[in-house]
Simulated scan of single mutants.
Amino acid sequence: MIYARIAGTGSFLPGEPVSNDDLVARGIETSDEWIVSRSGIRSRHLAAADVGASDLAVVAAQRAIEAAACTAEDIDLIIVATSTPDFIFPSTAALVQSKLGIRNGGAVFDVQAVCSGFVYGLSVAEKFIRSGSHKRALVIGAEVFSRILDWSDRATCVLFGDGAGAVVLEASERPGILASALHADGSHHAILCVPGGVAAGQITGDPFLRMDGQAVFKFAVKVLGEVAHEVLEQAGERADSIDWLIPHQANIRIIQATAKRLGIPMEKVITTLDHHGNTSAASIPLALDEAVRAGKVRAGQRLMVEGVGGGFTWGAALIDF
């Protein structure tokens, strides 16, 4: 049997932290107390105007490759999960491949599943590896969400940040990703979306993120609990076998409610949204890498990663690290 295991992790955050008070100083009508009480977020990172998702992704990728003790040329598949690509085309993954100097002709493509994007990319890469067609994949979540925020909408602009996280997934004789599940229901697209488009070289419609917060909360808590149980059942495991839950970092109340449904204490949940904000597809690999480098997540432990995002999309994976 061929399995897919995480061999290395990496991440990158642009610039210095931007606190809630910094946002107030920039003229946003809000307060630190208002933001923290509703989301748990205290600061986030925002990329400079000349920095794209591929720039963040490359640094995270280089760190993951170094941690995996391989070279860039060893990577034969690159999947980048992003909703904020550098260009309409080529893909951000193609730009990452070029910037890493990889010339081996391996496959590259982007995945657009918003905040579930990293879980989608991880699951797809695992299937490529288990099929035997590829040996080493780079799966990246990279976002510059600050580019699609309406900075006059205090209900949304204070929640998001920019960043990138990456893992190297490689073929192994030992099990790594034990089970995964992906889902979507496009009928809920209106409660979290950027309803703009491009036609004849012009942006059409609304180019900014729009969200019905209460509807998103209810939907997210429901499907995150369901998909976690689905993956555990698929693997023949119980929730008490999980050493760490690493959820998408959207809102502390969603994270707490999901952990409660699984019977997992918050002491076993990795949270970074207080200092990262919601970085969409980047949030899970960012949190994973921070936990690995802090010595929390260690080899031999069992992880559950899960995310839910606009689309609506959702998914989870159970991993032996």
Score class of each variant (00 low, 15 high):
residue 160 F to V: 08
residue 241 S to M: 12
residue 86 D to G: 02
residue 198 V to Q: 05
residue 266 M to L: 15
residue 135 K to D: 04
residue 67 A to P: 14
residue 263 G to R: 07
residue 85 P to W: 04
residue 265 P to R: 07
residue 34 W to T: 12
residue 296 K to D: 08
residue 15 G to F: 09
residue 309 G to K: 01
residue 148 I to H: 03
residue 112 Q to C: 15
residue 310 G to N: 07
residue 182 L to S: 06
residue 169 L to W: 06
residue 298 R to K: 08
residue 168 V to Q: 06
residue 13 L to I: 12
residue 258 T to F: 11
residue 167 V to S: 00
residue 239 A to Q: 14
residue 265 P to S: 13
residue 134 H to N: 13
residue 166 A to D: 00
residue 291 A to L: 14
residue 206 D to F: 07
residue 275 H to K: 10
residue 174 R to V: 04
residue 283 S to P: 02
residue 63 R to F: 04
residue 149 L to S: 05
residue 75 I to K: 07
residue 241 S to K: 11
residue 190 A to N: 07
residue 128 F to N: 04
residue 191 I to P: 12
residue 259 A to V: 01
residue 240 D to E: 14
residue 115 C to I: 12
residue 264 I to V: 08
residue 110 D to Y: 04
residue 183 H to M: 10
residue 4 A to I: 11
residue 120 Y to G: 11
residue 24 V to W: 07
residue 247 P to S: 07
residue 259 A to D: 03
residue 271 T to R: 00
residue 185 D to N: 09
residue 24 V to Q: 13
residue 116 S to M: 09
residue 134 H to R: 15
residue 167 V to M: 00
residue 222 K to E: 05
residue 159 L to I: 10
residue 272 T to R: 05
residue 133 S to E: 06
residue 290 E to V: 10
residue 312 F to D: 13
residue 75 I to L: 10
residue 257 A to W: 09
residue 273 L to E: 08
residue 122 L to C: 10
residue 144 V to P: 06
residue 65 I to A: 11
residue 220 A to C: 13
residue 133 S to W: 03
residue 119 V to K: 00
residue 25 A to G: 12
residue 189 H to P: 02
residue 60 A to M: 02
residue 119 V to H: 02
residue 77 L to G: 08
residue 162 D to K: 07
residue 47 A to F: 12
residue 300 G to A: 00
residue 158 V to P: 09
residue 214 Q to N: 13
residue 16 E to T: 14
residue 27 G to H: 09
residue 17 P to E: 14
residue 54 S to F: 05
residue 29 E to H: 15
residue 133 S to T: 05
residue 254 I to P: 12
residue 278 N to G: 05
residue 127 K to F: 02
residue 99 K to R: 13
residue 70 C to M: 08
residue 301 Q to P: 07
residue 154 R to M: 11
residue 220 A to M: 10
residue 200 A to G: 11
residue 308 V to L: 03
residue 135 K to A: 03
residue 315 G to F: 05
residue 185 D to E: 10
residue 26 R to Y: 11
residue 175 P to S: 05
residue 187 S to D: 14
residue 118 F to M: 03
residue 121 G to D: 08
residue 300 G to F: 00
residue 301 Q to E: 15
residue 157 C to G: 09
residue 288 L to I: 10
residue 150 D to Q: 00
residue 267 E to W: 00
residue 295 G to V: 05
residue 220 A to F: 13
residue 172 S to D: 14
residue 14 P to Q: 11
residue 185 D to S: 06
residue 311 G to N: 06
residue 283 S to W: 03
residue 49 A to R: 12
residue 48 A to H: 08
residue 33 E to I: 06
residue 4 A to L: 14
residue 176 G to C: 11
residue 223 V to R: 05
residue 93 A to F: 09
residue 29 E to K: 15
residue 286 L to F: 03
residue 97 Q to S: 15
residue 229 H to V: 01
residue 121 G to K: 07
residue 227 V to S: 04
residue 136 R to S: 13
residue 218 K to D: 15
residue 217 F to R: 01
residue 290 E to D: 11
residue 179 A to M: 11
residue 90 P to F: 04
residue 269 V to R: 06
residue 319 I to M: 01
residue 181 A to F: 05
residue 26 R to S: 14
residue 73 E to D: 11
